[in-house]
């Protein structure tokens, strides 16, 4: 067969788009090591901006807040999401459809609207804005994320496995714990990691539901960007890029183990 000339331009286009995707991030990481304070000119390698980050106390507090919120909201979302996924997959087909819609809506809802709705609600029930309200907000948008991922895995399972366990005298809880759960565990861990990442990265919902005392890492990054461009943000961004990559990598590895 002849080599398709179309393939050459498809490959060129794909490589071009990859450049478009990676160049901005690469530039950011490279410039986080630039000694220059204001200009884009390269003035030598330096770790001073990373040193500046390490001394920034407010940043450390923001990081702590972010990790706490991500951990608690992920725990809530995983518990609720996994149990809902198992429940939905047991329902007869016809009754699933409206639940499908109900779990899809938070995923397609504009984030600003979700933030606004939560803000109004918390103000109306006189709940003080702070770490707790942000955590609740994150657990709301993460429940459907977990449910979606775990359901996809549950659907591929052989239903006879759990039935066999039940026939052999296992209680429903035993059948779930000893048969179903080990089979879906990698997807549960993958979903939890994803929820954790989404929570760690969220800006919009956090922006609306955080009070003055509950600064998270993205809120801090935002205020740093808004107050002026300093190479300190480059260093912080570069670190966030590395953390995101590690989390995604871990999540993918988990889902891959799941396939085997």
């Amino acid at each position: 067969m002849m080599r398709d000339p179309r393939k050459a331009w498809l490959r060129a286009a794909s490589l071009g788009i990859m450049m478009f995707l990676y160049l901005p991030i690469a530039v950011l990481v490279v410039y986080s090591f630039n000694a220059a304070k204001l200009s884009t000119a390269w003035q030598g390698l330096s770790l001073q901006w990373y040193a500046l980050l390490a001394r920034d106390h407010a940043l450390l507090v923001a990081l702590q807040n972010s990790l706490l919120i991500a951990a608690v909201s992920t725990a809530i979302a995983t518990l609720l999401g996994v149990s809902a996924a198992v429940g939905i997959e047991r329902l007869p087909w016809r009754r699933r459809t409206w639940l499908d819609g109900a779990f899809l809506l938070p995923l397609v809802m504009p984030e600003v609207m979700m933030g606004v709705a939560l803000l109004l609600f918390f103000v109306l029930i006189k709940m003080p804005l702070g770490l707790l309200t942000v955590t609740i907000g994150h657990a709301v948008f993460n429940v459907p994320v977990v449910t979606m991922i775990v359901r996809a895995r549950l659907r591929k399972l052989d239903p006879h496995l759990e039935e066999a366990a039940r026939d052999l005298g296992a209680t429903p809880w035993q059948a779930f714990r000893r048969v179903t759960l080990p089979l879906v565990r990698p997807s549960v861990i993958g979903a939890a990691l994803l929820a954790f990442t989404v929570s760690l990265d969220d800006f919009v919902v956090t922006f609306f539901t955080a009070g003055p005392g509950a600064t998270t890492l993205p809120l801090k990054v935002y205020s740093m960007i808004k107050t002026g461009i300093s190479p300190e943000i480059n260093a912080l961004s570069a670190m966030l890029v590395v953390v995101s990559m590690a989390l995604v990598g871990l999540s993918l590895v988990m889902q891959r183990t799941n396939e085997k």
């Binding site: 901005p24 950011l28 993205p218 990054v221 966030l240 890029v241």
Partner: peptide, 11 residues
């Protein structure tokens, strides 16, 4: 999966 703020800031 890289932070959206960071990606916007990169631009």
């Amino acid at each position: 999966w890289t932070n959206f703020l960071v990606r916007t800031y990169a631009w």
